[in-house]
């Protein structure tokens, strides 16, 4: 039976977990977490935990799917069977197939693929724990992994989902807000170029609400972008003392 819809905006105007409408969850990022991959990153938005790894540029097989003037990007978004409330069948679902495509397209805009003709750059995203915003967390992690792999990028890509819950636009929705809210709008951008590389809307918004929602997403993405740059720098700051 359907559970009773919980109150998503409390009497005091805060959200069910105590956040302000325009507040992100606690975010943690770590770069270079896997030794085999050319680049990797672990990113957490609250309870959502995603790991991403990049292999490449490397040779592509079968050859006939390579491109003569640029690299192809292969991307897999996948959820671990234990990442959700009920066990998720590890076979790729229709949702995962769609998300792999939109994430690939969101990253492809940032990569200078023309530098590596006939090669492939493989991006693997594994959702280890899902609590809303897994695709945007995955994009943030994958962009860090690409940068960690030393692949030239036009800009980093950072993502966040904006939602509408109990009539209020809120930043960085979690699973409860996604499940019982009226709209879920994942956005990814190349923040310093001001370019949107992923935009989806699952739900209904008036044109005015949409403008507000996009502004809110931009604000959140700028904060996440700052954390991404810090996380990338931190890897090298930590190495430095050993050298001297």
């Amino acid at each position: 039976m359907k559970k009773e819809k919980p109150k998503l905006i409390r009497e005091d105007g805060l959200r069910h977990d105590g956040r302000r409408p325009d507040e992100l969850r606690p975010i943690r990022m770590e770069v270079g977490v896997l030794s085999n991959a050319n680049g990797s990153a672990l990113v957490e938005y609250g309870k959502t935990k995603v790991i991403a790894a990049v292999y490449g540029p490397r040779e592509l097989h079968p050859r006939h799917i390579s491109l003569p003037d640029r690299a192809v990007i292969r991307c897999r978004y996948h959820m671990a069977p234990f990442s959700t409330e009920e066990r998720k069948n590890p076979a790729p679902s229709r949702r995962e197939i769609e998300l792999s495509k939109v994430i690939r397209e969101a990253l492809e805009a940032a990569v200078f693929t023309e530098l590596y003709p006939r090669a492939t750059i493989d991006v693997f995203i594994e959702v280890l724990q899902a609590d809303g915003g897994t695709r945007t967390t995955g994009i943030t992690a994958a962009a860090l992994a690409l940068a960690d792999a030393g692949i030239p990028l036009r800009d980093l890509v950072a993502g966040v989902a904006v939602g509408k819950v109990d009539g209020v636009l809120v930043l960085d929705i979690d699973q409860l807000e996604d499940e019982y809210g009226e709209a879920d709008m994942p956005v990814a951008m190349m923040p310093s170029l001001g370019k949107i590389t992923l935009l989806q809307l699952n739900g209904v918004l008036t044109p005015e609400e949409f403008r507000e929602a996009l502004k809110l997403a931009e604000k959140g993405i700028k904060e996440i972008y700052r954390m991404q740059r810090e996380a990338l720098k931190k890897k090298y700051v930590e190495i430095k003392p050993e050298e001297t």
């Binding site: 939109v102 690939r104 397209e105 492809e108 805009a109 709008m185 190349m190 170029l193 001001g194 370019k195 949107i196 590389t197 992923l198 935009l199 989806q200 809307l201 699952n202 739900g203 209904v204 918004l205 008036t206 044109p207 949409f210 996009l214 931009e218």
Partner: peptide, 18 residues
């Protein structure tokens, strides 16, 4: 009203273009 949205293709849009 806007009942759904999806950006498709490998390129990008500026906020103003959206």
């Amino acid at each position: 009203r806007i009942a759904g949205m999806q950006k498709m293709g490998p390129g990008d849009f500026t906020v103003d273009e959206v």
